[in-house]
């Protein structure tokens, strides 16, 4: 068991024949991911990396039975790609591209939700179910199979956290990089729920950052709903208070989004909060050996 994706998940790639799309699709296939095709307009009918290329996502879904799409298109086309996936019946879109305009993602996310499609990202490393399925750009080799679920806003902290968990002799069930953009797809709350319900996940690592209030919402959710041990780190305790022009952002959430505020909320929810990412592995060991 795992969450969202496994060895049987059929994946297509939007932006399949581009430089990034090609490189990472190949890496994913080498990891064992079932990449069953891809989409590049005007290249339909060709073959790429031994898989069929389609002009539209709709054709790709019909032709391959894929349920998940990995999106590598340039920033200006991300929203279009997400909406196309949703309209074609894809159930999960993993958006790796960095730099998609916020207004575009707002519309794309609303449309995806309406069509019942989940998204991960944008601007994220993707999702990996250890030793089964990698959909993204993370170095696959560090993710050993095990019972720790991982959710992180930051890409490199995902690797850092997973690496430490594995070096302590444990492993990862599924790791999800949710991205740190203003509008993101799946967030802590939904993923915490999935990990809680996954029998093979025994503990959860949650890595957050300063800004926004997703971690505060997650803390409230954990307090009420999560019985599995959670280890958390919030990056940015030493980040200087930014020079700002207006005040509106902080007012809207009713929180300043500081690391301390988030750490306090998580502690109050019973989470093991570490002050340095170097402590994640040890903390996981401590909660699992209890």
């Amino acid at each position: 068991m795992s969450i969202l994706v496994n060895k049987d998940t059929k994946v297509i790639v939007q932006g399949f024949t581009g430089k990034e799309g090609s490189f990472h699709a190949e890496q994913c296939m080498a990891y064992g991911t079932k990449i069953v095709g891809g989409v590049t307009p005007n290249k339909g009918g060709q073959e790429h990396l031994g898989q069929p290329v389609f002009n539209t996502v709709k054709e790709a879904v019909v032709g391959t039975g894929a349920t998940v799409s990995m999106i590598f298109v340039p920033p200006a086309f991300v929203a279009d790609a997400v909406m196309e996936a949703a309209a074609a019946g894809i159930t999960l879109a993993v958006v790796i591209t960095e730099g998609a305009p916020v207004r575009d993602m707002q519309a794309a996310k609303a449309f995806a939700t309406k069509h019942g499609m989940m998204t991960i990202g944008p601007n994220c490393p993707g999702i990996i179910t250890a030793e089964e399925c990698k959909i993204g750009i993370m170095p696959g080799a560090i993710f050993k199979k095990g019972n720790v679920g991982l959710i992180s806003k930051s890409g490199t902290l995902t690797y850092e956290g997973a690496n430490q968990v594995c070096r302590e002799g444990f492993g990862i069930s599924t790791a999800v990089g949710i991205g740190g953009d203003p509008i993101i797809g799946l967030s802590y709350k939904q993923l915490l729920k999935m990990f809680q319900e996954d029998d093979d996940t025994h503990a959860i690592v949650m890595i957050g950052e300063i800004g926004g209030d997703l971690e505060i919402q997650a803390a409230a959710y954990i307090k009420e709903n999560i019985t599995k041990p959670v280890v958390a780190f919030i990056a940015g305790q030493t980040a200087p208070a930014g020079k700002r022009m207006g005040h509106a952002g902080a007012i809207i959430s009713g929180s300043a989004g500081t690391a301390k505020e988030k750490m306090d909320a998580l502690k109050a929810a019973g989470v093991t909060v570490v002050v340095s990412p170097a402590e994640i592995g040890k903390a996981v060991k401590a909660v699992l050996n209890k």
């Binding site: 992180s152 806003k153 930051s154 890409g155 490199t156 902290l157 850092e160 740190g180 890595i207 950052e209 300063i210 780190f233 990056a235 940015g236 305790q237 030493t238 980040a239 690391a259 002050v275 340095s276 990412p277 170097a278």
Partner: peptide
Amino acid sequence: VNGAGLAMGTMDTINYMGGTPANF
């Protein structure tokens, strides 16, 4: 450092170990 999250995490770790970061 590579990645904003790890960069902040590195600063936090330096601080935790009794040092002070000069930059992000």
